[in-house]
Simulated scan of single mutants.
Amino acid sequence: MKVLKTAVLVSGGGTNLQALIDYQIAQGDSCPYEIVCVISDSKKAFALERAAKAGIPSAICSPYAVMGEEVAKASDRDTKRLAVSNAMLEACEKYGAEAIVEAGCLTVLAGDILKKYENRIINLHPALLPKFGGVGMFGHHVHEAVIAAGEKESGCTIHIADGGCDTGKILIQKKVPVMPDDTPDTLYARIAPKEHEAIVEGLCMLAEMTLQK
């Protein structure tokens, strides 16, 4: 059975990475994907420990790691974004990745990686896009904005990454109610299990779409 060799991009705790790992282990030879590397834009990401425990190779592509501290400090956001994206592309190619999952990765990809992996990059966003997407909309910032806007429902979205910030074709959305007494923490707790379902479904969908070509 042909499987989709996949790189997972992370920034933090890696709970969605863990969902992908757990599914791959549970499905064994029938899993349509194989995680071949985990790439982080932060050396402090706990997701790196999850990768190590699962025996998956990893790479750190933080601005400091790929540019050096002095250059990174003197560079603007777009310059750092491109440098990190190029380093991530090198890591993906090194480990033979055929597709990419952004599982809580805060770097908005730019440059050649978008051409190399066109229509083979999916991103998880913790809201119902196109609402509450864009620059600054990540983690608890999203949930705070949803509650402040008086929304009755929220959830998560899996979409094709196209170089914009939370733009691209939507593949999957999972919805949860927003309760009157919700805090960002309680809303996140309700959404998180849906994220774990959605990211697995999204990668399986991407595998099906890609391997059929």
Rank of each mutant, 00 (worst) to 15 (best):
H143K: 05
E197H: 00
C204Y: 01
G202F: 02
G12T: 05
K152S: 15
L109D: 09
E201T: 03
M209G: 07
E90V: 12
G139H: 06
T183W: 14
E151W: 07
P126I: 03
I170N: 07
I35K: 11
D162I: 00
A26M: 06
P126A: 05
K152R: 14
L203K: 01
A87D: 07
A97V: 04
A207T: 03
L20M: 04
E201D: 15
L211F: 04
E49R: 10
V142R: 12
P184V: 08
G14W: 00
V71Q: 14
A161G: 06
I199T: 14
T79F: 03
K80D: 03
L129G: 05
C165T: 15
D78N: 12
P57Q: 13
N16K: 07
H140W: 15
G164A: 13
Y64W: 06
A207R: 05
H140V: 10
K194S: 00
D78W: 03
L20N: 02
A65R: 00
D29M: 09
V66N: 12
G150F: 07
G133V: 01
G111M: 06
I121W: 09
E90L: 09
D22F: 01
G150R: 03
G111D: 14
K43A: 15
A7I: 02
I35C: 13
R120C: 01
A83R: 09
G13I: 03
A145F: 14
I21E: 10
L128N: 11
L109A: 08
R50S: 04
P177A: 09
Q18F: 00
R50P: 02
Y23V: 01
L89G: 10
L203A: 00
A26L: 12
D162E: 08
I122F: 02
S11V: 03
S154W: 04
K73F: 03
M137R: 11
A198V: 01
A127L: 13
M1Y: 14
L171D: 09
L203S: 05
E102P: 02
V8C: 10
I25R: 13
M67E: 11
A189Y: 08
